[in-house]
Simulated assay, not measured.
Amino acid sequence: MDTTDPVPGIWITAVPPFGPEETGVLLAVDTTSADPGEQAVSALLGYGHEGEEGVFHLLPSDLSARCTRTPGRLAVTLFTSRAVLTRHFAEHPALLAHFTGDDEWVPLLRRALATDSAGPDSGPDSGPDGEPRAVLLIDHPGPAASPAELIAAFDAGEAGIAVLGVQ
């Protein structure tokens, strides 16, 4: 699940709905990817509940994030519950076959990036333990672009943003 692509698809940057002065974790998901994890995440984004300005919020049982910080590194893993995975993808056994095991929570996608001491642990979007309180997913067709290109695609209505709670 670790991504080793030159463009990691994860950034710490200023993005809506955090506002221009606040930074947060932004994760890109390619809606056309052949990767089973990205396919599952992309499909689950359709179960969000629309908030203001076209931003969707997902229930933690549908899709949530876990952040792990080690010195100089932040990793984000996206999870869904086994029940949600089984219920939503029962008609897609080839996709389900990629997510073996019987744990209650199923990891779908993991992205990581190098960080310094500045970042989500020092901004207003962080919880009391210094971890991000939310991760923003931006779904778009094609490989990950720069954050500015992704935000422009969102502003043009060509990409969506979903807010995931952090467990």
Rank of each mutant, 00 (worst) to 15 (best):
P147G: 00
E53N: 15
D35F: 10
V15D: 08
L109M: 06
E149W: 13
W105L: 14
V84N: 01
P132A: 11
R82T: 04
H140P: 03
G127Y: 02
V106S: 00
F99C: 06
R87H: 12
T31N: 03
S61T: 14
S122L: 13
D139R: 15
S61D: 10
A97T: 03
G160Y: 07
A28R: 12
D35Q: 11
V29N: 00
A65S: 08
R73N: 00
H49S: 14
P124Y: 09
P8T: 12
L45P: 02
P17N: 07
I161K: 01
A134G: 12
S126I: 08
A112Q: 05
E149V: 13
F89D: 04
R133T: 14
T4G: 15
P8K: 13
D129Y: 05
M1W: 06
A14W: 12
A159M: 01
I138H: 09
C67Y: 09
P147Q: 03
L108P: 03
G130P: 10
D30G: 09
E21N: 13
G19F: 08
H92S: 15
R73F: 04
M1T: 02
P141T: 08
P71S: 11
H88Q: 15
L136Q: 09
L26V: 05
G46M: 08
T77Q: 04
P20G: 10
S33Q: 12
G19R: 00
R110K: 06
F18Q: 09
